[in-house]
Amino acid sequence: MTDDPRLILLDPRDNVLVVRSRLRAGDALDLGGGASSVADKDVPLAHKLARRAIAAGEKILKYGAPIGVATADIPAGAHVHVHNLRSDYTPTYTLDSEKGDAA
């Protein structure tokens, strides 16, 4: 569990946290379990952060369920999105301006 009011852990099995109010680059983050980090960029409402370091090829878990696989090593506290997470079913379509950095 994280005590950071800006972050939600939806299920104890999850390796991501959901942002409940916008983060600014440089904000200090409490990831729970004694882990801390600093936001590497502005992160909008309802986007995801790595709860701990995630290796490329690991499943990303949200709601306690797999939502895809990490395509790169993701440090704890980093933004988890279409630039480092892909579907196990169908590719995600995004407009060019949203690729990688959706802030």
Partner: peptide, 19 residues
Amino acid sequence: GYGSFAAGNADGGLSTIEE
């Protein structure tokens, strides 16, 4: 060739169709 997933879904923080 597409999931039921629009560009704005990703803008709003959703990364994959499973999510």
